[in-house]
Design a protein around this nucleic acid. Structure first.
Lengths: 205, 205
DNA sequence: TTGCAAAACGAACGATCGTTAGGCGATGAT
DNA sequence: ATCATCGCCTAACGATCGTTCGTTTTGCAA
């Protein structure tokens, strides 16, 4: 568990420690605020308490630092969606609820990581971008499949499954742009409400 | 009307012409792809067919170019929402539909402008940022007020009005990230479906 | 206490950044 | 015909960019 006085920065999956971890955290904070190209390695180094040249004992390049963050965010997201999907094998509605809750919770718990992962893809080299896109496709596929399962079972009814996915997925992604503890919502409240909205949206009146 | 062979770049409200307009268009294309800090003035100049120094006869700075785009996008958005809201003074449901359609349509017609306006705010100076935030507040207020009107009239029913706004507004914003004519949806189709989803979401089963 | 690997350092590399200064040629009104 | 204006030019400014080099410091094992 992280300290209580600041939002989670890196998910538990990260095994980075020491200076490497500090650099990841610093990069997350600054990239999340001003974007990859808006932050210099000198800034990163200063925030991490070392000299710019010392960074290169811990990472191959500035872009590798971004790639590490983006990959971490996408893998965490995909794995959480997988767990959510598998937690409700029998009930499509509950499966959908679990997926939306997991999707929203990720963006509430790691808003900075989600922001970086969603808007700095343009700074990745083609190889890295392709790897990330494959993970995105997996996550998207789980949501889409569940929507289609529900439609097939007659419990959901939508004019277009992909557009429903776009609304549900997109609104969850945006949570990372506005959420903060100061907003007065608990994570539980947000994810439950979003799950409710998703079910409403998927079930015809 | 713009040429049919490419997506709209600048809305009709822009009175820029000649080299100034060309610079705005080039900035929109490149900022939209790689972000404000990811594009140099030399790149902008080359894409516009002039030398870097010649740009400064048409604009005060690179940041002013961004500010012009961001302000244009936000003003167009607010004005369209205003027109939509005023088009249906009597029927809350239809007013909400009109607002969502306008919101989505803006993001479908000007995806690049919307992207720049939504993710490059960090590169604006405080004064510009404040101006933009005020316009955002106006637009957001119109959507929120209409939701609350519907709840007050008993035609909408939501656990939390602001979270409903976050879902409806956020999903519309995300349209700018995925929409392209090649997706196979018509703008009409998207905005109608999103409006349908919004009403579903706002009305209890 | 010595030895060694890890980690930090100062200095500098060539490249590129946003911007300015001053000149040159075409255009259009007087 | 003259002259001011305009749009673009070349050249360069100082600053900062990401990264590399070789050296020194640090912390732990022998």
């Amino acid at each position: 568990m992280d300290d209580a006085d600041d939002v989670n920065l890196l998910p538990a999956r990260s095994d980075a420690d020491g200076t490497h971890r500090r650099l990841l955290e610093v990069a997350l904070l600054t990239f999340g605020e001003r974007g990859f190209h808006g932050v210099s390695v000198r800034e990163l180094a200063e925030a991490a308490g070392i000299r710019p040249s010392s960074m290169y004992a811990h990472l191959a390049s500035k872009e590798a630092l971004l790639m590490e963050l983006v990959a971490m965010g996408h893998e965490e997201h995909r794995d959480r969606l997988r767990a959510a999907r598998d937690s409700e094998p029998d009930n499509v509605t509950e499966r959908m609820r679990a997926l939306v809750r997991a999707h929203v919770r990720l963006h509430v718990e790691y808003p900075l990581l989600a922001r970086v992962a969603n808007r700095e893809l343009h700074a990745l080299k083609p190889a890295g971008l392709e790897k990330v896109r494959a993970i995105r496709e997996e996550a998207q596929g789980m949501l889409l499949q569940t929507i289609q399962d529900g439609v097939g079972a007659g419990v959901f009814s939508v004019p277009d499954a992909w557009l429903a996915l776009a609304v549900i997925g997109g609104s969850g992604i945006r949570v990372a742009e506005w959420w903060s503890p100061a907003m007065g919502y608990t994570p539980q409240e947000v994810e439950d409400t979003y799950a409710d909205f998703a079910i409403r949206l998927l079930t015809a009146p």
